[in-house]
């Protein structure tokens, strides 16, 4: 139990540091790495959102702002493609093995892709792997647990 709790603390730090799907930072350095950097804070809790190119310290919309300086009047861009740009869910065959395509499982639960609060404060709604895909983020970490 304690180890799982520690894991979730780590998990929260990961999300807070940009694990919401794009390039994270744990160094406090605001420089862009790749094309999707969104830094909210580093692991020491310092606010790193005041750098020159970080548009926002929060990501509550499921889209990440990139390379924008709103103080200079730049418009806000996002890295989340529209549904039409993303296209249909990949075809099978499906399996749960490395290198294979995972099937589009349908679920229900507390959806908190922004990872900004304890999950059960969020709406209890339908969710699926396709919903995760349509966030436009790069990677999903799917942790499978069992109630005991």
């Amino acid at each position: 139990m304690p180890k799982l709790r520690v894991a979730y603390v780590s998990l929260f730090v990961l999300v807070a540091c940009g694990g919401s799907g794009d390039t994270g930072s744990t160094s406090g350095d605001d420089s862009a790495v790749g094309d999707d950097t969104l830094v909210t804070s580093d692991t020491e809790g310092r606010d790193t959102t005041s750098g020159s190119d970080t548009a926002s310290g929060t990501d509550t919309t499921g889209t990440d702002t990139i390379g924008i300086d709103t103080a200079k009047g730049d418009t806000v861009a996002t890295d989340a493609p529209s549904d039409t740009a993303i296209g249909p869910y990949p075809a099978g065959p499906y399996s749960a093995n490395e290198g294979d395509t995972i099937t589009n499982l349908a679920w229900i639960g507390y959806v908190n892709d922004a990872a900004d609060a304890v999950a059960d404060t969020k709406p209890y709604v339908d969710y699926s792997l396709d919903d995760a895909r349509r966030t436009g983020r790069k990677y999903l970490l799917l942790h499978v647990s069992d109630f005991a």
């Binding site: 749960a96 294979d100 799917l142 647990s145």
Partner: peptide, 17 residues
């Protein structure tokens, strides 16, 4: 997905594990 405790990392651009 099989028995817990299992962690998958999925590339959301291709849905490959």
């Amino acid at each position: 997905l099989g028995q817990r405790e299992t962690t998958y990392i999925v590339d959301l651009r291709t849905m490959k594990i």
